[in-house]
Nucleic acid binder design. Structure first.
Lengths: 187, 187
DNA sequence: TCAGTTCTGGACTGTCAAGTCCAGAATCCT
DNA sequence: AGGATTCTGGACTTGACAGTCCAGAACTGA
């Protein structure tokens, strides 16, 4: 049984945890920092998350996955113009945030995957759903005759996703990689 | 001035460090463990690496990058049969090592990138060289007429690399993803 | 051989972060 | 109002791990 105030506090903590998690991953994630930025205390942390750090991380990951899927669902990539726009936007976003975690899913994935298997399945689920979305869009394009009738929609979706993730990783080490995504268009 | 014995000890430490680093990344990397598995002591670590952990990590990363580039250079992917074989081998390798770090570069990258910018540039260099190798192979294929004359070799190389990296990340969360690489072949 | 150098072991210190505990404030319910 | 419940703050304990220090063993070269 928790009051409205309690819920709010809990939410504040989770929110701050997501931020820290996206930036530094589980490894560089420290509870005190979250507590400090939210101006809460140890007591509260363990009040809302009896299992401490682990439980908080799980909650934060879940929250983040939900958030990401919600935003990615907002775009409909069912025609070439939309794709072009999306590619441009993505590349631009990557350029802006330059070194720092252009793709948040990739960021999460790379960092979370080393730890709890529980979190791992959350991330897996996110990928599957995302791939499903893309495949759905491509399916529609095929129905509209924008794609060859024998186009392997699922494979293409996987490829898009992989390029996106891989590109994010490589970007992080190198510089800009527009060509990565341009190469996709020939599929 | 170091003796042969000293060199050997140093090498042993670096070698063990690479193993730990590949498995757990800088974050989960702990010096005592390396010392224990190599049956060496604090004294030796700081004898050979006056700057401690950081210096050891740098040395280990460098070592690993060298190793990886050396092995990847051994394969010549300049015809479709070779590609097919390579894809099969890669997928099989991923399946075997299943959850555990199929692609070691990806593993390194994901984990090392969060830390020292010095290490980052090492990884970047590894990527660039690798991409260069692939592009070279493709170039040869184009010259042999196996690829269309107007094929954007560099873009393709980047794509292959990105798919490989992204696939590794996604694999780690999910299951097998053969189609990823198969989709590549249509380029 | 033996003085000088390099190598090795391990006890010790300092720091940082996770988790515990409990007293007191705020809030809820009747 | 007032007892029960929930929320909050922060001191304290514990543990892990990086890094220090130095004594003594092993090796080198003359």
């Amino acid at each position: 049984m928790t009051t409205a105030k309690g819920m709010a506090t809990r939410a504040r903590i989770v929110e701050a945890a997501v931020d820290r998690l996206v930036v530094g991953g589980v490894a560089n994630f420290n509870v005190d920092e979250v507590l400090h930025t939210t101006r809460t205390s140890k007591g509260q942390l363990f009040h809302y998350f009896p299992n401490g750090k682990d439980e908080l991380c799980a909650a934060a990951t879940e929250r983040q996955v939900d958030r990401l899927l919600a935003t990615s669902r907002s775009e409909r990539l069912d025609n070439w113009q939309a794709w072009d726009r999306w590619v441009d936007a993505t590349v631009r976003r990557h350029e802006q945030q330059s070194r720092d975690d252009a793709c948040q899913v990739a960021a999460m994935a790379g960092r979370v995957l080393d730890t709890e298997p529980g979190l791992r399945s959350l991330v897996a689920q996110a990928y599957e759903r995302w791939a499903g979305q893309i495949a759905g869009d491509l399916e529609r394009m095929r129905a509209d005759g924008l794609l060859r009738a024998d186009a392997p929609v699922d494979d293409l979706a996987s490829t898009v996703l992989a390029v996106l993730q891989g590109g994010a990783v490589i970007d992080k080490a190198t510089g800009s990689h527009d060509h990565l995504r341009r190469a996709l268009h020939q599929a």
